[in-house]
Write a protein that binds this DNA or RNA. Sequence first.
DNA 1: AAAATTATGAAACAGAAATTCCATTCGCCA
DNA 2: TGGCGAATGGAATTTCTGTTTCATAATTTT
Lengths: 277, 277
Amino acid sequence: MKADLDFPRDFDALRAMVLERRDTLPKRIAQVAAYALDNPDEIAFGTAASIAASAGVQPSTLIRFAQHLGFDGFTSLQGVFRERLRERNNSYEERLKALRGEGGGRTQARGILEGFLSAASRSLDTVSRNIDDPLIERAVDVLKDAETIYLLARRRSYPVASYMAYALGKLQVRYHLIESAAGLDPEILAFASPRDAVVAVSFSPYASGTIQSARVLAENGVPVVAITDSAFSPLAESATVWFEVVEADHAGFRSLAATMALSMALAVAVAERRRGA
Amino acid sequence: MKADLDFPRDFDALRAMVLERRDTLPKRIAQVAAYALDNPDEIAFGTAASIAASAGVQPSTLIRFAQHLGFDGFTSLQGVFRERLRERNNSYEERLKALRGEGGGRTQARGILEGFLSAASRSLDTVSRNIDDPLIERAVDVLKDAETIYLLARRRSYPVASYMAYALGKLQVRYHLIESAAGLDPEILAFASPRDAVVAVSFSPYASGTIQSARVLAENGVPVVAITDSAFSPLAESATVWFEVVEADHAGFRSLAATMALSMALAVAVAERRRGA
DNA sequence: AAAATTATGAAACAGAAATTCCATTCGCCA
DNA sequence: TGGCGAATGGAATTTCTGTTTCATAATTTT
């Protein structure tokens, strides 16, 4: 007889058990384990067949996974995932309530995190209200015909350009990321022609390098798509199309969430347009 | 014939429809309707038989209720209740839905932008639920004593590190951003001692450079704070403290919003702690 | 290297679930 | 009151789901 009664009663226990045993689990079982921890909602609602397909295994493997953990079948394992979903929603309600009630039990670091999360969230809200369709379309029109897209951003804005570079690379769109303040940039920018295009990102206080480069490029007839934070931005003057993105800030640091989302949207939209979609 | 295709797509619409018609509904159907609005979780998780018993009606009545509302059966009605449970507390999502409703004609690019905004918002929600205070405190403890903070991130994660570098610089915290895959990194990392610390960021598929460097540093006794996306991440093994941040994605590109917020919070919290605040 | 054990895939199976059907009851109007 | 249509209960039916089984592959042990 093998009365395996020590199955995990809740999600945390299950998670702990999986992590503890992960090295000893068979390959397919481990594959299911990883999927389960990463997609708990799927497990809670799906059927054995649908989950198995989504995780790339056989339904029977799911049951074996459950049995490895001490459950007597998939159904009882699923119960744990459902219970978690019920409780999570409850605790989240309470979390919101605590936040509204200005709960005192938060640590300082937690408060800072909430601040940044809130700033990011406000930025997203703002940009979704303020960006209008024709503007995006015009920007995409400009960029879709460019032989090379030059990415211009410094300091605070640099992370935006570097993520855009990553995306454009994946999308097989030719680009050039203007890296450093040092040396080579002027020469590289001298190659830019009116058949190329520039994406320039700068927020107040504007990095002078970005502003000047953008101006020079614009004077040479290279179309410029700008992302900046005000109509009075010196970037707006040089721009063919410009977006006003006002990021909320916390502790003196602005969120980049909205700018990131916009720049990624531009990258993907350009790639799709080129594919003729 | 009356092809009733206008069944309620979400819980709010369903609720509104029920309230509107409640006077005209047959007795048993009304009984089910009341039960459904009062016990939505039961509907989401239960079976038709168990719900029927719990509501004091026959299973067939449950189906009639669903059909009265325009669904083609109990199963599709249940789908609405499940969807609600998944997407509860996602205020941004609902706002987007409302926007679509009134806006009418969206362009393709606009759709892509909304996709990224929505992904960012979901990421923020998730991280605010899943990160707990003690974890942040421990990470800050590790970092506050470091002489130099080494920032380790490649490719997709690199923008995070570069923004963190910007912030740490402003905050006058000594750091070193590991730049390129080329040449100098090993020598620079060899300087790191147990009195320093590392912030490593990597998401699946994990950049091998980041993983290896983190492992070597950990073996040399340098504390590692990791931000990664799964308990199975190889980064988690090397980490002294690790955060699980699951970013939502759109069009194949993950949001960085949550990771950005977390990394900025760490930077600011460390600086404040050092100031003795 | 061979044998034994364990893991995996695919399909068959049994049971439960949702749905349909039909006889009966209820409520309403002539 | 009698007749008609809608509503209801309960069983029959069909669809689908979790589980089991078995043959095969992989892995470990001897």
